[in-house]
Design a protein around this nucleic acid. Structure first.
Lengths: 197, 197
DNA sequence: TAGATAGTGAACGAGCCGTTCACTAAATGC
DNA sequence: GCATTTAGTGAACGGCTCGTTCACTATCTA
C-alpha cells in the first residue's frame, strides 16, 4: 500500500511511473520539446534513475512508445463487413496517432538514421494491426468478397501505411474523409474481386 | 568575379552558399546532429546572418529542403512502359531520400506538430512526382492498359507515399525489391484493367 | 564621396545535457 | 532484529549549443 506516499519506489514500479510521466509530457509539449528533467520531475524521480535505464531521450521515448503500443493492443473482433471493419481499425490507428503514441512515433522517426535498433517499436505497433486486418481479410475471403492474394503482408499493411504516411507528412492524424477515400479508391478496389465486367 | 575570394557576399549569393553548406552538413551529420554554428562556419558566414533569415534550425532545413527539391525537379519523359516508368520514378525518389533531401524531410517530420506551415515543402516535393506519374498514367490510359480512374490524386500519389513511408519508418530508402513488390502487389494490380475473368 | 545597408565575429546569459557523488531508503541475508 | 547490499535521490558540475547583442567593416546607392 505504498500508493499515496510512495516513499521510494524502485524497479518495475518506478519504471511504470516514468513511462506514465513520459507519455503525459509527450502529450503536453510534444517530442521536440520533451526535456528529460521535466519527465524526472513529473515522475518525482532522480534524473540519474532515467539515465541508468535509457542512454538518451530517444531511447526513453522509444521505450515509452512500446509500452503504450503494447497497452493499446486490444484484440479486435471483425463484424464481417469488410469495409466497415477496416474503417474502424484505421480510425483507431489515427486516434492513436493523435495522442502520445503519435508523438513517440514522430520522435522516433525524426531521430532515426539507418535504423540499427528500433525495429521492436515498429513491430510492437504493426503486429496488432496486421493481426486485426488479417482477420478481417480472412473473413472476407471466406465470404468470397476478398481475393486471397490480399493476405500478402504488403497488402495487409497498406491501409495502416497510408494512414501513417498521412500523419507523418501532415503532422496530424488522418481525418475521416481521408480514411474513406483511401478505402474507396485504393484498398477496397485492390482487395475485392472484380469478376463483373 | 568574387568567386575564389568572396570578400563579403550578401543577398542571394550568400543565401545560396548557406543552402549549400546546410545540405552538405545534412549529408554528413544528419538532421539530428546539425549545428547552426557548423553550417555558418562551413558557409564562412556569421551566425547572425542565419538567424536574420530563419528563426530556427527547423526553418533553415526546411528552406534548404525546398531549395533542393526545386533543384532536383528534372522533367520526366515516359517511355510508354508503365511499370518500367513507375519503377524509374520510384527509384529516383528513393535516391533523393538517401541523400540530404531525405535528411531534410526527416527533420521536417520530426519537428512537425500539427503543421501550421511547411506545406510548401511538401508541395515542392510532391508536385514534380505527381506530374511525372500523371504523365505515365495518361500514356497508359491512351494505350488502354491503365484505368482512367487511376488519375485520381490519391492513386497518383500512392507509389510515392509507400516509398516515403518505407523511408520514414525504416530510416533508409526503399531497396529495389521493395519497389518491385509495391509495384507488383499494389500499384499495378490497382491501376490496370482486369476485364479478363 | 557620404550615407545607408548588410554581413562579420566575438562575446554573452541561459538552458539542457549527461555525469558524478554523498546521502538515504528499501530489500536481503544472517 | 540487525547489518549489509542494492537502488533511488537531489544537488552540483563542466560542457555544449542556443539565440541575441554589439562594435566594426565591406558593399551598395544616391
Amino acid at each position: 500500500m505504498s500508493e499515496s506516499t510512495p516513499g521510494r519506489r524502485r524497479g518495475e514500479e518506478l519504471e511504470q511511473a516514468i513511462f506514465k510521466a513520459t507519455i503525459e509530457e509527450l502529450a503536453e509539449v510534444g517530442y521536440a520539446n520533451l526535456r528529460i528533467e521535466s519527465v524526472a520531475a513529473r515522475a518525482r524521480a532522480g534524473k540519474a534513475s532515467l539515465y541508468k535505464r535509457w542512454p538518451s531521450r530517444a531511447h526513453l521515448v522509444r521505450a515509452a512508445g512500446r509500452h503504450l503500443a503494447v497497452a493499446a493492443d486490444t484484440s479486435y473482433e471483425p463484424t464481417g463487413d469488410v469495409r466497415a471493419d477496416l474503417a474502424d481499425v484505421m480510425r483507431r490507428i489515427a486516434d492513436f496517432q493523435g495522442g502520445s503514441g503519435g508523438e513517440a512515433v514522430r520522435g522516433y522517426v525524426g531521430e532515426l538514421t539507418a535504423a540499427p535498433d528500433g525495429e521492436e517499436l515498429r513491430d510492437d505497433i504493426e503486429r496488432p494491426r496486421v493481426r486485426a486486418i488479417t482477420r478481417i481479410f480472412e473473413a472476407g475471403v471466406r465470404e468470397g468478397v476478398v481475393r486471397p492474394e490480399a493476405l500478402a503482408p504488403r497488402i495487409v499493411n497498406l491501409a495502416p501505411s497510408l494512414v501513417t504516411h498521412y500523419f507523418l507528412t501532415r503532422g496530424e492524424p488522418a481525418p475521416q474523409e481521408v480514411i474513406d477515400e483511401i478505402l474507396d479508391l485504393v484498398v477496397m478496389p485492390l482487395i475485392t474481386e472484380r469478376e463483373h465486367r
